[in-house]
Computed example of a mutant assay.
Amino acid sequence: MLYAVLKTLHLLAIIVWIGGMVFAHFFLRPALPAFEPAVRVRLMHAVLGRFFGAVLAAIAITLLSGLWMIGNVAKQVAQAGSQFSMPLEWTVMATLGIVMMLIFGHIRFVLYQRLSRAAQAADWSAGAAVLAQIRTWVAVNLGLGVLIVLVTLLGVPR
């Protein structure tokens, strides 16, 4: 029962993270040119601040639940007298998930701080430049997230 609850939380956290990136990248950002630069930068700063808080929670849930599930399976295999060998799909998922978390750390703790400074200084061109960098890294993370989902669902060709 606990495994099912943690797996559900794990999946919901991933849905929030990937779904938020899809929304921001494909729906929110393309709608922004209708607004003045000051509004665009302030709006994205406010939206990203809220979203990044949710992503931090999603990362914590994903990391803790994933580690617990892997550890639980390894423990069960060991108790059955076998040696645990993590499936390749799990290894790919965990490795790329860590890469995504590191990229997010760069976005949140470096680029978003630059965006905050640009918004506070009313430097709209600097804000736009930082938003372009954020957009690039979000696209990379979105691609990695989709790849993880595909590998997890379809497997790795052998």
Rank of each mutant, 00 (worst) to 15 (best):
G97V: 03
A129C: 08
M93D: 04
G143Y: 07
L154A: 15
G155W: 08
Q113P: 06
L142V: 13
A128Y: 05
F51I: 00
V156S: 08
L115Y: 03
G143A: 07
L43S: 15
L28E: 04
P30D: 08
K7C: 01
R158H: 15
V156H: 06
E89H: 09
M69H: 04
S65C: 09
G49M: 07
G145S: 09
F109Q: 10
V73Y: 01
M69T: 10
Y3R: 13
Q113I: 08
Q113N: 15
V92P: 03
L131K: 00
G53K: 11
L11S: 07
W137V: 07
K7E: 06
V55F: 07
F51N: 01
M101N: 09
M86Q: 05
L153E: 13
R114S: 07
A34W: 05
R158G: 11
W17E: 00
G71H: 01
R114Q: 15
I70P: 00
M21P: 08
M100N: 12
P37K: 01
V149C: 04
A80T: 07
I134E: 01
G143N: 07
M69D: 04
E89P: 06
V47Y: 09
L9N: 06
V151P: 01
R29G: 02
N72Q: 13
V92K: 05
W124K: 06
V73M: 04
Q133C: 07
S82R: 12
V73F: 05
I148Y: 01
F27A: 15
V77P: 00
S65V: 04
A57T: 14
A13H: 01
L48T: 07
H10S: 01
L63M: 11
V140R: 05
T62V: 10
Q113W: 02
S125Q: 15
D123T: 10
A129I: 06
T136P: 10
T91G: 11
V22F: 12
A31M: 13
V146R: 03
R40L: 08
A58N: 00
M93R: 05
I59V: 14
R29D: 04
S82Q: 11
K7F: 06
V55A: 09
I134A: 03
L142Y: 12
G71S: 02
L131I: 03
G19Y: 10
H106R: 09
Y112V: 06
P37H: 08
N72A: 13
A31L: 14
M93P: 02
A128F: 06
A119I: 09
A132Y: 07
S82C: 11
V39W: 14
G127N: 02
V99I: 15
M1A: 13
H45D: 12
P30H: 09
A78W: 09
A139N: 13
I103T: 09
A119Y: 02
L142A: 05
T95S: 14
H45C: 06
I14Q: 14
M21L: 12
M21E: 10
M1V: 09
V149E: 02
